[in-house]
């Protein structure tokens, strides 16, 4: 059984495009996990910690459609650009679509929201001193 076999090819490509776009917009690595989260929050944090050195900069979105659970975990450096309140807003955007059985759409909306809020403003002025 291929990974993520609950998704069609188009859906998997769409999710990959969403993550790539979020990384491009925010400048931070995003990671999406859709699967069993029997360990809850602790398991999601363990998934982030398993990334090693890049974990501090990473935003992990972990979703368990079976138990209807969503975890957004931000590394310490990522949390400086993406605070918990913004994560809660992204979670709300996702769960609103999840309730309508739109898993891919909810992921797209939530991840885009997180990426937009984490975006660093473009530098308009260059110091001449």
């Amino acid at each position: 059984m291929p990974p993520g076999s609950s998704f069609s090819d188009d859906q998997r490509l769409a999710l990959a495009a969403v993550i790539a776009s979020a990384e491009r917009v925010s400048g931070m690595p995003f990671r999406l996990y859709v699967g069993e989260l029997s360990g809850g929050r602790a398991q999601a944090e363990a998934l982030l910690a398993a990334l090693g050195a890049s974990a501090a900069d990473t935003v992990l979105v972990a979703i368990d459609p079976g138990s209807r659970r969503l975890e957004i975990v931000t590394g310490p450096r990522a949390a400086q650009s993406l605070d918990d309140r913004t994560c809660a807003l992204g979670a709300l955007a996702m769960t609103s679509s999840f309730e309508a059985d739109d898993l891919v759409g909810g992921i797209r909306n939530g991840v885009q929201l997180l990426a937009d809020h984490a975006r660093h403003p473009a530098r308009r002025h260059v110091s001449t001193f």
Partner: peptide
């Protein structure tokens, strides 16, 4: 309750990959 199917992990470096072993 369990998710039907293997876990799906998506990041910026790989398009679609399995995270069964790592998870």
């Amino acid at each position: 309750a369990t998710f039907a199917g293997d876990p799906l992990v998506v990041d910026g470096s790989t398009d679609v990959s399995s995270a069964a072993a790592s998870s």
